[in-house]
Every structure is written in C-alpha cells, then in structure tokens.
Design a protein around this nucleic acid. Structure first.
Lengths: 232, 232
DNA sequence: TTTTTAATTTAGATGCGTCTAAACCAGTGC
DNA sequence: GCACTGGTTTAGACGCATCTAAATTAAAAA
C-alpha cells in the first residue's frame, strides 16, 4: 500500500509534468509540496524503487505508467470530491480545494463509486478541470490556451481556473472571473500584466502568473458567457 | 495539533471508559486498536504529557476534561459521517463504520457543520448511537439496558446495535435485528446464549457477547416494532 | 507471608518522512 | 578549458508509531 504522502508526491509530479516529456525537477516538487529538496530527493528515490517513477539522477523524475495510474486515481478522487462539495454540500467553488486535498487519500473505492453515481458521472469539476473516468485513462490536462497567450481584442471564454490558492480564487470569483465567463482582452501590458473586460464591461487586471492559470477557449462566434459544455 | 493516531487512542479510551471511573487498562486499549501493549503504553504516556489523559502507572489511563472533549469531537465526526453515508450516499447501516473510521480524522469544522446542517442536526446515527452536539457536551453512552440482562418473556425494542464488525452487523441485519425492532426474549440458555423472537415470530439465537452489544428499552406497552423516537 | 502469575513498563530497534549541513554534479561565463 | 554558481544528492539526525525481548510490578494463589 501507498501512504498519503506518496500519493501526494505522485499527484504533484503528475501536475508538474504536463504533456512535456522532460523529467520534473526535484526542486519543483519540493517547492510545490512545501518540503526541502533533500526530502523530495529521498521520497522520489523511494517511489523509483517501487517502480512508480523513473528517476534520472540530477535531472528529476518522470511517472511510470503505474505511477501515472495512481496519480490519475488521486486526481479523480480530488476532482470528484471538489464537485461533490460544491454541488451537494453548498461549498463555493473557491473553497473546495483544501478539503478535497485532505480527503482524497482516505476515501474507499465504494465511496468514490457512490459519489460519482450521485453526481451523475460528472466530466468536469467546479474549476473546469476534467475528471478522469473510472478506468483511469489519461485526460487532457492542457486543453485550450492560457489567457496569457492571447492578444488585445481577443474574445475568449474561461474554461478552467487552475489556481489552488483559496484567497486568490476568492478574489477572481469576486471580480467575476469564473469558469464560463466570456472575456475580451483589453490590454496586454509590457509589465507582465493583462487586462480583460467582463461581459458587463468591467475591466479586471491580472498578473501574468495568474493569467497563465486561466485556460480559455476562443469565442469568435458570439456567445453569452454561459458555461460552455464539456469537451469530449 | 493531534495526529490521527492520537485521536484514535483518545476515542478508544473514551469508548472503553463508559460511565465507570476506573482507569482503562493499557491492554484493553492495545487490543482494541490492534497494537501491542508496549505501543499503547508509549502512546498513553505521550497523551499524558499533553494533558489529554491522566495516567496511573500499572493501572491505566483516564481521559482528562480536555481529552474527553477531543474524543467527543471525534465521536461526533464518526457518527455524523455514518449518518451521512447512510442517508445521503445510500450505504447500508452495516457498512458505514469503516468508512467513517477513516474519514473522521480528516474532515474540517466547515465540513462537519455543513453535513450536520444537511442532515438536519440528527441526534442518533444509524446504529442508534447518540451524536454529540456541536458544543461537544458529554452524551449518555449507556442508555437503556443490554439485551443480555433481560429474562425470558421480556418484551424489548432494540435501541442501539453497538457492534463495529461489518460482517457481524450484516448477519444481524439479515436476521432482522436492527434498531427499532421489537423483540421478545424466548430463552436464556445457560451456555451464554439468548434466543429472541422477531415480530414475525422468527427466533434468532445470539451469543452473550453479541447480546451485550445490543441495547434495548423495555416495551411493556404494546408497540409495533417501529423505530422509536429519539430520547432527549 | 511467600510464591506465582499476569499485566505493565523499560530497553532497544525499525521504517517513514522530515530536517540541516556538507559534498557533489552540470551547465554558464570568462 | 577552468572556475563559478545553482540545483541535487549524500550524510547524519530527529520525532512518531510501531515492534520484540527483557525487566518490573501488582495482584492472586498457596
């Protein structure tokens, strides 16, 4: 059996890996998990011994097929829980992350199944992130484009807000930037900041790092800013 | 902060303590938690250093007021979760224990509050055990009498089935012995076994140990075997 | 009262997950 | 081509929760 910590490391490597084939650096894992580099090194070593990651010394780690499956299961738990908390227990979508982060390691298969069923086998969570199916097949974690790669005048619809910080999310939510919102890029400033217009005309300025966490789809065809439907 | 393990020890001492004022023995704690006696000794020592139990060397441990409050909070989590699993996720009352046992240590105050609200602040869980209120005031853990102390001819209503083993509970449930059921004591055998009759006349034999885990109220006044209402 | 027995505690060890301090690569700049 | 710099790993340590084996104590039996 795997410990909750091991699951956390696998999930983190999964999240940092993206669709890149480069190994994930020790320090990025350490930073994300709030531990020191040596701690990450030793945990990665352990995971490599168990065949869950491939480790290249001084380069970093990459999930094996088996490690990826574990990570996807944890991600599935996380996103199902987020959806459940929002839909069934009345949590705001900006508050669900931390609760799901703890519970994801402690629910049974049975619990997962019943939650999935109760929610009607949802395909995205409240942040717009796709929920892996129960066969744990890989999902596209980088669908669409980031808001930051768009130019002035572009019209887009927010698909996913990938931030994990509750305060930042609350700010975005309060400002009106939520999954489904239609935005027009008003200004791309040279100081790593982007300003967008909400449907009501209200401008919102966002630092580059935040804009990278917001994934959007192009909205050439006139839409209303309603939440878009799930992509396959 | 307290670890999940510490919470488990406190809950266990709470459950073994009952209304007795005697300290709970090291070995009973160890047995209940499936650890060796030295392990229990050292954990109890740790809890004593933190002021959560009073320890009498070679006698055992007793919860302090503070330790009791922690234990009651864990018990509240456990019983709210059991109720939630049964009512909202369709679990059978015989299956909820293990899931609640894991989750009880990992839910937030916010989660507890929302679950409590969604359930309408229930007063008993699916086993008939009282759910401590949110002020964590002590509850009566030994209300009523045990089935084992009854004599032939007595008519009783099952109030609580305190067993924690899913298989045993499934057997009892299958046999028709569930909270709310009206029973007539048919035979008290000298081999530590009691036989009761269900409302439909079907006899069920139970070993003494099981009969002790079943708490009942007397049912002199004719009742139908419907679930009884909550006592204050 | 002395002996025996059963439970409890001490002693010493292990694995996990973490740390700090120090040694060690690998790629960049000169 | 060599030294520097920054990230990575090794070394050694600690706290938690656990174990086994041995010593100790309390209570029961003789």
């Amino acid at each position: 059996m795997l410990s909750a910590k091991m699951e956390d490391y696998l999930k983190t490597i999964y999240e940092l890996q993206g669709r890149s084939d480069d190994p994930v650096s020790t320090s990025s894992v350490a930073e994300r998990l709030g531990v020191t580099a040596p701690t990450a090194t030793s945990m990665i070593e352990t995971l490599a011994e168990r065949g869950l990651v491939e480790r290249e010394k001084y380069k970093g780690a990459r999930l094996t097929r088996e490690g990826e499956t574990v990570a996807i299961e944890v991600v599935r738990h996380h996103r199902l829980l987020e959806t459940y908390l929002a839909e069934q227990l009345g949590y705001d979508w900006t508050e669900v992350h931390d609760e799901a982060d703890r519970l994801e390691h402690h629910i049974s298969e049975e619990f997962e199944r019943r939650v999935d069923e109760k929610l009607g086998e949802p395909e995205v969570d409240p942040h717009g992130d796709p929920i892996p199916n129960d066969r744990l097949e890989p999902v596209d974690e980088s669908s669409g484009e980031t808001l930051s790669e768009h130019a002035e005048g572009d019209e887009v619809v927010v698909e996913r807000v990938r931030d994990r910080d509750a305060e930042e999310l609350a700010y975005l939510s309060e400002a009106g930037v939520t999954p489904g919102t239609r935005l027009v890029v008003e200004e791309v400033a040279p100081i790593d900041m982007i300003t967008v217009c909400l449907p009501d005309g209200e401008p919102v300025s966002l630092p580059g790092e935040i804009a990278e966490a917001i994934r959007v789809s192009s909205a050439e065809a006139g839409g209303s800013g309603e939440p878009s439907e799930v992509e396959g």
